[in-house]
Design a protein around this nucleic acid. Sequence first.
DNA 1: TCGAGATACCTTGACAGCCGAGGTATCTTG
DNA 2: CAAGATACCTCGGCTGTCAAGGTATCTCGA
Lengths: 110, 110
Amino acid sequence: MSIAGDLIRGHTDAIILARLMQADSYGYEINKIISTLSAGRFELKEATLYTAFKRLEEAGCIASYWGDSGAGARRRYYTITPAGREASHRLLGEWRETKQIMDKLLETEE
Amino acid sequence: MSIAGDLIRGHTDAIILARLMQADSYGYEINKIISTLSAGRFELKEATLYTAFKRLEEAGCIASYWGDSGAGARRRYYTITPAGREASHRLLGEWRETKQIMDKLLETEE
DNA sequence: TCGAGATACCTTGACAGCCGAGGTATCTTG
DNA sequence: CAAGATACCTCGGCTGTCAAGGTATCTCGA
């Protein structure tokens, strides 16, 4: 991975929820979307992803159901809950704030 | 802290090195500068900060020396090394990349 | 003079998230 | 029927954060 995992640590939930705001999805697909959108530079490891799913489901942010697979093994789909939408919105706000502050702290030449 | 620590996890080193690129400094001061520049929304805890100093010194990115204090207790000043400058530059690049990718992953409305 | 408060540094142990490694099951295709 | 893609899951180690607690120095006011 070109970008160290710790750089996205703490953003994992935000990324997953943002995906589920678009549409229901499942682990394997979310992983590929992230990889595609980031041109391969972000890559959530499976263990990380499933840990996050479990965490988010326990927190009531997402719910899951077994769905049909077009091809391949069975899929566990995740859908976002109202609490998840709220969390997603909050996390997006936090990201924007983080971005501003980090820029202030790192970009010293104006 | 309004911004969870995990959000800046992985950026701590970059923040510290960026500070030391400006001038030699010491723990207590760096902490206050970060707090000030972020309007109190980022706040590295002391334990975190000193852990980071130790890590960066062992990695050869910074060096330290005891300096005079104008008022108060003795201070351990840190200065950035050539390796630290390199690391700082690299981390800044990674931050810019992270920012772009995160925006792609989170900001869905164009 | 002496105690409070600011300055300043440091360590320990608990905790949480990331991930390497390994495992299971299903479906398609040759 | 074997190989490879799809798809899910767990365990254990590692690393960074932080609450809590500790030490020492200096200033200033009562």
